[in-house]
Simulated assay, not measured.
Amino acid sequence: MFKLSEENIQPFRLQEALHNEKAGGYVSFEGWVRNHNLGKKVTKLEYEAYPSLAIKEAKQILEEAKQKFSILDAHCVHRVGSLDIGKIAVWIGVNSIHRGPAFLACEYIIDEFKLRVPIWKKEHYVDGDSGWVKCHHCHEKHKA
């Protein structure tokens, strides 16, 4: 399950959908809006997406994670629109029979999302400037 949302992400509600009697492990990741990046003070973020392609690619990544790590299920919600400092920008939840695959799948999903899903982040800075940013460390990781 993947969803783009203009509403605040509520992790506890999302976690409920992953309860499964077969699952022995559950791992989640929350990406939060922080107040700085690359030496600049950030006041807020904006996310824009190409919805049809983002949903298609996100579902593909979740399916890849299921196959690659033998997990039971994986869900993700990503915000779009304007987000204040401290808000959750992305949430990922993974369940599996054992904890190890859930940890690996969760990391795989966030890294692949940052690399492949057409969602763009614009940072607004204290000095009034703003700019679109990309995930440099994700791109570097894939070059290695």
Rank of each mutant, 00 (worst) to 15 (best):
V33I: 15
W32E: 15
H78W: 08
T43P: 03
K22T: 09
K3F: 10
C76Q: 03
Y47V: 02
N35M: 11
E7L: 04
L38F: 13
K44W: 04
L14V: 00
Y26G: 02
S28I: 04
K41G: 06
E63Q: 11
Y50H: 02
E57G: 05
K44D: 07
K68N: 12
N8I: 11
Q60R: 09
Y50G: 00
A49V: 03
E63N: 09
Q67I: 11
L62Y: 01
G24Y: 07
P51H: 07
L72S: 12
F69C: 05
L38S: 15
L4Q: 05
E48I: 01
V33D: 15
A65K: 00
A54K: 03
A58P: 06
K22F: 14
N20M: 11
F2R: 00
F29P: 00
N8A: 09
A23S: 14
E48F: 02
A23I: 11
A23T: 09
K41E: 09
A74W: 01
N20K: 12
L14P: 06
Q10I: 05
W32R: 15
L62P: 00
K44V: 04
F2C: 01
V77T: 14
V33S: 15
W32K: 15
V77N: 05
K40V: 07
E30M: 13
K59L: 15
K56D: 14
E30P: 09
K66R: 10
E7N: 06
R34S: 13
S70A: 12
N20V: 11
E64D: 10
E48D: 03
G25W: 01
K68A: 08
E6I: 10
K40L: 08
F69L: 06
Q60C: 05
A54L: 01
F29Y: 14
R13Q: 14
Q67G: 13
V27R: 00
Q67C: 07
N37F: 12
S5F: 11
F69Y: 11
Y50S: 03
S5A: 07
A49I: 02
K3S: 08
Y47G: 00
V27H: 01
G31E: 08
L45D: 01
E46A: 00
V33T: 15
K22R: 14
G24C: 10
T43Q: 06
K3H: 08
K66Q: 07
G31I: 05
K40H: 07
Q15K: 12
G24D: 06
N8G: 01
M1I: 04
L72K: 13
R13I: 08
R34Y: 15
L38Y: 09
E6V: 12
G39A: 13
K40S: 03
R34P: 13
G39M: 12
G24K: 09
G25D: 02
Q60L: 05
A17F: 11
V77G: 05
Y47D: 01
V42C: 08
F29N: 04
F2V: 00
E63I: 05
C76W: 02
G24T: 09
L18Q: 03
L38K: 15
K40C: 04
A17G: 06
E16R: 12
S28H: 04
H19Q: 12
A23C: 11
G24R: 07
E7V: 07
K44C: 04
N35I: 11
M1A: 00
K3R: 14
V42F: 06
K22S: 09
G39H: 14
P51M: 06
E63L: 10
E21C: 14
P51G: 08
A17W: 06
A65N: 03
V33Y: 14
G25C: 00
I61M: 04
